[in-house]
Design a protein around this nucleic acid. Structure first.
Length: 191
DNA sequence: CGAATGATATACT
DNA sequence: GTATATCATTCGA
């Protein structure tokens, strides 16, 4: 089943990040459906988090989707090359989000391989936020897309996750965020 | 290890 | 309006 909007409206963005592990991220663009099990996430706790674009209530045209009501996508082009896919959570005016960093391919493998210019599946297909978004066909013009609609959504397939399979750790690639970079907001699913 | 690459934020004229 | 620094990264040596 598709996760209801209420899933995204809970207050604890870190908990949502943890809950997203094992859920299935689905996209449907141009009739091509691709699905993948989420294996790595990072929480971005809004105004209190230097690593977030919305730190200090910095509100711009780009970050606007994060200030909207939870349950939509926030897609951002990083380093001019990579599309990063985030899930916006919490109430309106609260810029919390969860970055999806990695996943495991399920359906639509051919389309993912084509988008990534690969002949066969390998362990880099969905490794890293930029690669993941590219494989699923997510583009910056999908920012603001509802996650309860028909283009991008997340399903709960009742995959059982044991607590021992989840590991938390410091986030990566956000060294500029100073001490906030060390916060254990990164979650991985052990395979 | 280092270059690529472009939208965006910010500081100017 | 124009200029420039910066970036939640990846890929190829």
């Amino acid at each position: 089943m598709t996760l209801p909007q209420s899933f995204y409206l809970r207050e604890d963005v870190v908990q949502i990040g943890r809950d997203l592990l094992g859920k299935v991220l689905c996209t449907n663009f141009g009739g091509q459906v691709t699905t993948a099990t989420i294996t790595e996430t990072e929480a971005y706790a809004g105004v209190d988090d230097k690593a977030s674009h919305a730190f200090g209530n910095r509100r711009t045209k780009r970050t606007e989707p994060m200030f909207a009501l939870g349950g939509i996508a926030y897609v951002y082009l990083c380093y001019g090359i990579h599309h990063l896919f985030n899930v916006v959570t919490n109430d309106a005016e609260v810029p919390h989000a969860v970055l999806i960093r990695a996943a495991m391919a399920l359906e639509g493998l051919d389309a993912m391989l084509y988008r990534r210019s690969k002949a066969e599946e390998d362990d880099t297909l969905l490794a890293g936020p930029g690669s993941l978004a590219q494989a699923l066909g997510i583009h910056t013009n999908h920012t603001g897309t509802s996650l309860t609609g028909t283009r991008i959504w997340i399903e709960d397939r009742k995959t059982k996750i044991k607590a021992s399979q989840i590991s938390a750790g410091p986030r990566v690639g956000v060294d500029y965020a100073g001490e906030d970079a060390a916060r254990p907001y990164r979650f991985r699913l052990q395979i």
